[in-house]
């Protein structure tokens, strides 16, 4: 590891009341890496994403993206610095069209204000055309599922799997350096899961995103991850390749009690 990691977390802590959701976590993601974050329910994985994207402030610690501490920035500023995410329970803009959802992703990468919009200046038109063009390109990444007549459909008519895809497209459109995927395969059937697994790999190989994902499905984790980090009660209990982690005693211990619970969730 010669270069500086893309995401460097130092000593990060966050408590909700008396509950320590994240405890003195050290963590990093290198450029062009796919890192999986796993752990039993309540381990603090989503909280970690919320901290990195600035949705909640940490109690202590540093979050360094590309050499800059981003703690204290607003979520939109963090997105501008190149961190985009998806949500565990898909949060699209349901009454906006598919295309508009993706265009929102490009919000920080475009810049005309109200005056340009009212006067329909050439610069505004050009930018608008480019943005739409780029949004369509982004959607084309998912094959034929989100193109054509789909562009102008409101997001809430999409199937569940397509919503997940659209959410990824929205995040991609913001041209992030780091893509945080929160359980991208949750609620999908085996075929869709397999397809999405491939897609995650393609996101890195073809599109050049660095990826950190939370995942419960161990087959997905095993297939895509360069590195796996295991959280339990807000602390890192193991880290390494999938095989190293899968055979780690503490990990097995952390999971054993919760396996049944997980299956039901």
């Amino acid at each position: 590891m010669s270069a500086q990691p893309l995401l460097q977390i130092r000593n990060l802590s966050k408590a909700f009341g008396g509950l320590m959701a994240i405890q003195e976590l050290d963590f990093h993601v290198n450029k062009d890496e796919i890192v999986s974050l796993i752990g039993p329910n309540g381990a603090g994985k989503t909280t970690f994403f919320n901290l990195v994207t600035g949705m909640i402030p940490p109690d202590a610690g540093q979050i360094v993206v590309d050499g800059h501490d981003i703690v204290g920035l607003r979520p939109n500023q963090i997105l501008e610095r190149g961190v985009a995410r998806t949500f565990q329970n898909v949060r699209l803009f349901p009454n906006m069209t598919v295309l508009e959802n993706v265009l929102i992703g490009q919000h920080t990468r475009t810049g005309t204000g109200p005056v340009g919009a009212i006067l329909r200046t050439p610069a505004f038109r050009r930018q608008e055309e480019q943005a739409v063009e780029k949004a369509k390109e982004t959607l084309a990444f998912f094959g034929s599922r989100l193109v054509g007549y789909r562009f102008d459909q409101p997001a809430n008519v999409l199937s569940y799997a397509n919503r997940r895809r659209l959410e990824i497209a929205r995040a991609m459109a913001s041209e992030p350096k780091l893509l945080l995927l929160d359980e991208p395969t949750a609620g999908m059937n085996p075929r869709e899961t397999a397809e999405l697994t491939e897609l995650v790999a393609k996101l890195r190989d073809e599109q050049g995103f660095t990826i950190c994902l939370i995942e419960h499905d161990m087959r997905v984790v095993g297939r895509v991850s360069d590195r796996v980090v295991v959280l339990d009660y807000g602390t890192k209990i193991a880290e390494g390749s999938y095989h190293e982690v899968a055979n780690d005693e503490r990990v097995v211990e952390a999971y054993l009690g919760t396996k049944a619970g997980k299956a039901a969730s």
Partner: peptide, 14 residues
Amino acid sequence: MSDYGAALRRRGLE
């Protein structure tokens, strides 16, 4: 940059 410095900067920004 230290934690403390960052916090101060943030306060200032605010």
